[in-house]
Amino acid sequence: MQDDDKPVLDEIINGNISKYEIIINKYQARIISLCFRYTKSYPDAEEVAQEAFLKAYNSLNKFRFESKFYSWLHRIAINCSLNYINSKEKTKEKETISENSGLTEHKGVASIETPYNAYNMQTMAKKIESVYNSLPEDLKLVIKLRDIDDLSYDEMSNIAKLPIGTIKSKLHRAREILTKALEKYTEDE
């Protein structure tokens, strides 16, 4: 299984530490969201996610590329979250929490005021959803297959009945449209 992150991870392992920022930027939103399902608090979720990224970095030389890097990072983040719950439990409640018992959906969470120096992801999500829905069908399909369903280019090529080169070019075009829609939300950086 070819991991898209392998070239970057190889560079990090060979001493180019600064490249780890690419990994963090790529997965930060999903990892914080995962940790939030357990911690139920955004500041705590960020703290746990930070710990997970640091743990992954410190154990990177043990990663054997037998699975995707994100799956490995996901597992580390779950372990960190469970450790967090257990440490909280000792002081608060004596309730056994299984791996999935902390999982909740966003739907129940009321709109929270965005703190200073933070991205309002809800606003970004609304924008992305509307732009995604207005995309031409062929672009929408490649985005769905690659970014939502996590399919390989070979699998995408079989489903869309298009050559891999065309798939890649369509995907690039679709991502460009979507990221451009988010640019104004990160202009102050």
């Binding site: 930027n25 969201s33 979720a45 929270i112 992801m121 970014d147 990221t179």
Partner: peptide, 26 residues
């Protein structure tokens, strides 16, 4: 970063808000 946000949003795996300096802190 933006591609990561797009993917997180499309997969519905995003927090409601997120510190801008999260990666720089790490």
């Amino acid at each position: 970063k933006l591609t990561g946000f797009v993917k997180a949003i499309l997969k519905k795996e995003y927090p409601l808000y997120m510190s801008k300096d999260f990666s720089s802190k790490i």
